[in-house]
Amino acid sequence: MSQEPFPDRPHAKPVGKGPVAAFFGNLWRVALVHFAWPVVRLYVWLNERLRAPKWMGGSLREIGLRLWGFAWLTFVWVLLWGDITWSNIVAGAGIALLVMIFLPLPRVAVEGRFHPLPALKLVATMLYNFFISSAQVAWAAVKPGPPPLGVVVRVHMAIKSDLTLTLAIDYINLVPGTIVVEIDQPARMLYIHVFDARKQKHIDEFLKQMAYIEREFIKTFERDDEWHPSPLHGIDDDYHHVPYADRQRVADRDAARKEKR
């Protein structure tokens, strides 16, 4: 005599998505196959066969970047006035066009590949260091005793890309108590002012923090196996004086940290 597996629930339905939920759950896959992929193929085909005028950038990617910059400058102009009107939009478009023609910004080389998970880790660490450093600076301002001893520490960053190095400098400047006062770009050397360095352990902790920033920015933006120098820089070694030994030092330090866990 057979028994039901759930005698107290004779009419239990099998676990799973219903037809409507399954339909909408698979909708994004259908859209990816039948819409997104043809659009990407069309973009590649147009980029290979169409030649845009040099004054527009010479490629579809450059045209897209310029259109984005034009739209952003127009948006900032309308935002400054505070009213979305046709007159503000037209005036903002005119100002944006004049700025892009007569005051063009230098082209920034984009190299390597972006990894979102290490980037989230960097942001979380920055927020943590921001609150900790803010509390330390506030306590140093009110506690009795001699004032903090500020020093300038020289730190070498084994970072190749100028864009990534700029982001790392911004990261350092956002943390209270530290600020980059001088940059030796060819040598990748930063001179950083440290708020309180009365003890050697303060310097050691600061250098440890800089090593962490260096390692995480490399993992986020320019891993060695994904590095592609930008053609804007010509020969990579002529512009990025980062010896292999320095990059290997970062990799060895990261491997040693993983072995300790």
Rank of each mutant, 00 (worst) to 15 (best):
M1W: 05
R9P: 04
P14L: 11
G16D: 12
V20G: 12
A21K: 14
A21F: 14
F24Q: 14
F24Y: 14
G25C: 14
N26M: 07
N26Y: 12
N26S: 15
L27A: 15
R29Y: 09
V30I: 15
V30F: 15
A31N: 15
F35R: 11
F35W: 13
V44L: 11
L46Q: 10
E48T: 10
R49G: 04
L50F: 04
A52T: 00
G57R: 03
L60G: 05
G69V: 00
A71R: 00
L73R: 02
V76S: 04
W77H: 05
G82R: 11
N88H: 08
A91R: 12
A96D: 04
P104R: 00
P104M: 02
P106T: 04
P106L: 06
R107Q: 07
T125L: 09
M126T: 05
F131C: 04
S133Q: 10
S134I: 10
V137Q: 01
A140L: 07
A140I: 03
A141S: 02
G145V: 08
V152L: 14
V153M: 10
R154Y: 14
A158Y: 15
K160T: 11
D162W: 06
L163W: 15
L167V: 09
I169S: 11
D170V: 10
L174M: 09
V175I: 13
V175D: 07
T178Q: 05
T178K: 11
I179Y: 05
V180S: 02
A187G: 12
R188Y: 03
M189V: 10
L190E: 03
V194I: 07
D196G: 01
R198F: 04
Q200S: 00
I203K: 01
E205D: 03
I213P: 11
R223W: 07
W227T: 08
L232M: 11
I235A: 13
D237F: 07
Y239D: 05
A245T: 13
R247S: 08
D252L: 12
R253P: 02
K258H: 03
